[in-house]
Simulated assay, not measured.
Amino acid sequence: MDMKIRRLKTGEEPPMELLLLADPSREMVGEYIGRGECLIAESEQGTIGVYVLLPTRPGTVELVNVAVAEELHGRGIGKRLVMDAIETARARGFMTIEVGTGNSSLGQLALYQKCGFRMVSVDLDFFVRHYPEEIIENGIQCRDMVRLTQDL
């Protein structure tokens, strides 16, 4: 699939429907989208994917959201987005890229490790504390944030 990834333009509306696939909290997405760098993937079908990079500490950036249109899952687009995020972070001079995902996000945990991330910690009950609604994924309650990192 022919796909181009570009930075969201100033004043352009972010693809909220995609962003909410990866993070169900409109409030949290709105908060970090304003502080981070949003990049969108486009094809002849329109906007098909998105990711957000958020500087967190000197030399460190977090990949806070990665989403692909549901009808296009399983085509390698997510991996292309994660690899692009890694290259973008490196090109921006960051030394470390981090990502966090739910304990129940089995596909995402596998994807991040395939892209070179290593698990470093677990933030117990993160999703219970920060999300009012219970999240169930793959038949598992999403409770804990698994943190992964990669040196660039």
Rank of each mutant, 00 (worst) to 15 (best):
L152N: 02
A67S: 14
L18W: 01
C38M: 11
A110Q: 12
N138D: 15
M1G: 13
A89H: 00
M83I: 04
E134F: 10
Y51N: 03
P132M: 11
D123L: 11
T96A: 01
A110H: 15
D2S: 14
R80D: 06
G107T: 02
C38E: 00
V68P: 00
E98V: 11
L106Y: 07
C142E: 06
G139F: 04
V50N: 03
P24H: 04
G139D: 12
K79D: 07
F117I: 01
V120Y: 12
E134L: 01
G36T: 03
E134P: 09
R129V: 10
K79W: 05
L20K: 09
T10G: 07
L109I: 09
V99E: 05
G34T: 09
I5L: 14
R6Q: 14
L152Q: 00
D23K: 00
N65Y: 07
T88D: 00
G76Q: 10
T10R: 12
E87P: 00
A110D: 12
T96W: 05
P58F: 08
V29N: 08
R7M: 09
G46T: 10
E70I: 12
A22C: 09
G78R: 08
E133S: 09
K114A: 14
M1Y: 03
E27Q: 14
P15T: 05
V66F: 10
P55E: 05
F94E: 00
